[in-house]
Amino acid sequence: MRLGTRWAAFTAPPAAVPDALRSQIAAVEKLLPEGQLTHQPTPSWTLTWLEGRPVAELDTGVIVTLDAEGQVVVRHDPDDEFA
């Protein structure tokens, strides 16, 4: 069993976050309006594991994961209440 973790956007991901996801997580964060977040809480990432693959989900509904072939996939959960 692998334990997940949580961290704030715009901070360094913890060591548990696989290297394969790190560059795409950084790319997603570059698209966030960091300067406009002063009146809102900073969104956080949550790392979980599904069928042995890492899933990093931002509070905004953005999901960064690996597909079955090991390729990084970025998608948005349309059902996320904060999106």
Rank of each mutant, 00 (worst) to 15 (best):
48 T>P: 06
38 T>R: 12
79 D>N: 13
74 V>E: 08
17 V>I: 11
18 P>A: 05
27 A>T: 08
41 P>F: 13
82 F>W: 11
44 S>H: 15
27 A>P: 01
4 G>Q: 07
15 A>Y: 07
70 G>H: 08
70 G>E: 05
37 L>S: 02
31 L>E: 14
38 T>W: 08
54 P>D: 04
21 L>N: 04
65 T>P: 00
13 P>Y: 01
56 A>D: 00
79 D>T: 14
77 D>N: 15
66 L>F: 01
40 Q>W: 08
75 R>L: 09
5 T>D: 15
62 V>F: 02
33 P>F: 10
24 Q>H: 11
33 P>K: 13
66 L>G: 03
46 T>V: 13
78 P>M: 06
60 T>P: 01
29 E>H: 06
23 S>N: 12
55 V>Y: 03
69 E>R: 14
27 A>H: 09
69 E>I: 04
55 V>M: 08
45 W>S: 00
54 P>F: 07
72 V>T: 01
73 V>H: 03
55 V>W: 02
81 E>D: 12
77 D>H: 07
16 A>K: 14
23 S>W: 09
32 L>G: 03
63 I>H: 01
21 L>W: 02
81 E>G: 04
83 A>N: 12
65 T>N: 00
66 L>P: 03
35 G>H: 08
30 K>G: 06
42 T>G: 04
58 L>V: 01
69 E>P: 00
33 P>S: 13
35 G>N: 13
52 G>V: 02
82 F>N: 14
39 H>L: 12
20 A>C: 03
15 A>S: 14
54 P>Q: 07
13 P>Q: 05
29 E>F: 08
44 S>R: 15
39 H>T: 12
62 V>R: 02
67 D>P: 06
69 E>G: 06
82 F>I: 07
82 F>R: 15
57 E>W: 00
73 V>I: 14
49 W>F: 03
31 L>G: 15
51 E>G: 13
46 T>Y: 04
25 I>H: 00
61 G>D: 04
19 D>F: 09
9 A>P: 07
30 K>Q: 15
37 L>D: 02
81 E>Y: 06
83 A>R: 14
29 E>M: 10
62 V>I: 15
29 E>W: 03
53 R>V: 03
49 W>Y: 12
83 A>G: 15
42 T>C: 12
65 T>C: 02
19 D>S: 13
3 L>R: 12
46 T>K: 13
10 F>R: 02
22 R>H: 02
8 A>R: 15
75 R>K: 12
32 L>W: 04
42 T>S: 09
33 P>G: 09
48 T>D: 14
67 D>N: 15
9 A>R: 07
51 E>D: 15
11 T>E: 14
34 E>D: 09
2 R>W: 06
4 G>M: 05
19 D>V: 13
28 V>I: 09
